[in-house]
Simulated scan of single mutants.
Amino acid sequence: MRVSAPDHVPLRVAAALFLTVVLAGCVAVPDAGLSQDSLEDQLNDTEPPDELSATVEISETIDGETSQRTETVWLRADGTSRIETTTNGSEQVIVSDGTDRYIHDLERDAIRSYERDPNAKSLLEGLSAQPDRYLDAYDVTALEEVQFDGQDAYRVEFEPPANETIERSVGVQVAQTEYVFPLETTEADPDERSADRVELWLEQETLFPVKHTIAGDGIELTTTYRNLSINGGLADDLFEPPTAADNDTDETEFVFPTIDQYDTVADAEAAAPFAVAEPSADALPDAVSFDGASSYEFHDKDRRQVSLFYRSEAGESVAVTTSDGPRAFATDGDSVSVGETTGTLEATEQGTELQWSCDGLYYSVFVSDAVGDAEDAIVVGESLGFEC
Results as ranks from 00 to 15, higher is better:
Pro6His: 09
Val9Gly: 02
Val13Thr: 15
Val21Trp: 01
Gly25Asp: 10
Ser35Cys: 06
Asp37Arg: 13
Glu40Pro: 00
Ile83Val: 15
Thr85Cys: 09
Gly89Glu: 10
Gln92Pro: 04
Val93Ala: 10
Thr99Ile: 11
Arg101Gly: 01
Ile111Trp: 03
Tyr114Cys: 04
Arg116Pro: 00
Asp117Val: 08
Ser122Val: 07
Leu123Met: 12
Gly126Asn: 15
Gln130Asn: 14
Asp132Pro: 03
Arg133Met: 13
Tyr134Thr: 02
Leu135Ile: 13
Tyr138Val: 09
Ala153Glu: 02
Ala153Pro: 02
Glu157Arg: 14
Pro161Ala: 12
Ser169Lys: 11
Leu183Tyr: 07
Thr186Asp: 12
Ala195Thr: 06
Val198Cys: 08
Leu207Asp: 04
Ile214Asn: 00
Glu220Gln: 15
Glu220Trp: 00
Thr224Phe: 06
Tyr225Val: 09
Ile230Gln: 06
Gly232Val: 10
Ala235Gly: 07
Asp236His: 05
Asp236Phe: 04
Leu238Gly: 08
Phe239Pro: 03
Pro241His: 05
Asp246Ser: 12
Ile259Trp: 00
Asp260Arg: 13
Val265Ser: 05
Ala266His: 05
Val276Asn: 01
Val276Arg: 06
Ala277Ser: 14
Ser280Gly: 13
Ala283Asn: 11
Phe290Ser: 08
Gly292Cys: 08
Arg304Cys: 00
Glu349Met: 05
Leu354Ser: 01
Leu354Gln: 02
Gln355Ile: 12
Gln355Phe: 08
Phe366Glu: 03
Val367Gln: 02
Ser368Arg: 09
Ala374Ser: 14
Gly385Leu: 04
Phe386Gly: 03
